[in-house]
Design a protein around this nucleic acid. Structure first.
Lengths: 117, 117
DNA sequence: TTCGACGTTCTACGAACATCGAACAAAGGA
DNA sequence: TCCTTTGTTCGATGTTCGTAGAACGTCGAA
């Protein structure tokens, strides 16, 4: 199914090992970096050097860990960071991870593409 | 060898994915929680519900990730948290992880044992 | 209805991981 | 020297993960 009622854990259900495990993959960290400005992205805007099934897998892991939220609009899906929820659950964690990732260049393989880019 | 020149990465060599991956295991989080008061522990003081080879493995992962430091004294080994190094490398990360772990009870399977306890 | 675009799921595979038991090596004491 | 203690390493096992290709389902347009 192109559009599915993606399972998003409630804030209370987010688990620390799941979050850290999800963030231990450079591709997923790159996605989080891209989304860290708070703007939502369509999946077509994501440029990741993996097959689309693999990207779907990574986005599912992020979603299941409670790190991102997916919204459907017609056939297209949009993904956004759940930064507020994460801040409530793990204050300071996201910022610490992001600044570390930027400093080390983790996730630079993930890029963004403008419409028609 | 009971005593080995354990490989500790330099502060500059610590990698974020390695750190997050190391912290995504509840047993290792429990060890970090135990050490989070800054006190050094002898391995005999660590009560973990795993075989000693498994404990050795977990401590090696933590050491290789740069999270802990191991010191040898005779036949015994002592382990301590590299909290200062981690704070330099990833400011706020350790505290965020620890408070989340405490809130969720992650790593409670790891206990401490006093001499003769 | 037919077609194309989009994302999910299935299946498969190699790599990495957590775990254990057993064998091994080094330091200290009897 | 022999033995105990302590921690490492090896071999084996079952699981999970990252990855990809192929098939499928859904939506919108023609």
């Amino acid at each position: 199914m192109a559009v599915k009622a993606a399972a998003h854990p409630d804030v209370e259900e987010i688990s620390l090992p799941d979050v850290l495990s999800a963030l231990s993959d450079p591709v997923r960290v790159g996605l989080v970096r891209l989304l860290s400005d708070g703007r939502e992205r369509g999946w077509g805007e994501l440029r990741v050097p993996v097959a689309k099934s693999t990207l779907s897998h990574h986005l599912r892991v992020l979603r299941a860990a409670g790190i991102t939220r997916t919204r459907q609009e017609g056939t297209r899906c949009y993904v956004a960071l759940r930064d507020a929820d994460l801040e409530v659950r793990y204050p300071g964690l996201l910022r610490a991870v992001l600044s570390g990732a930027v400093a080390e260049g983790v996730g630079e393989q993930v890029h963004e593409v403008r419409d028609g880019g």
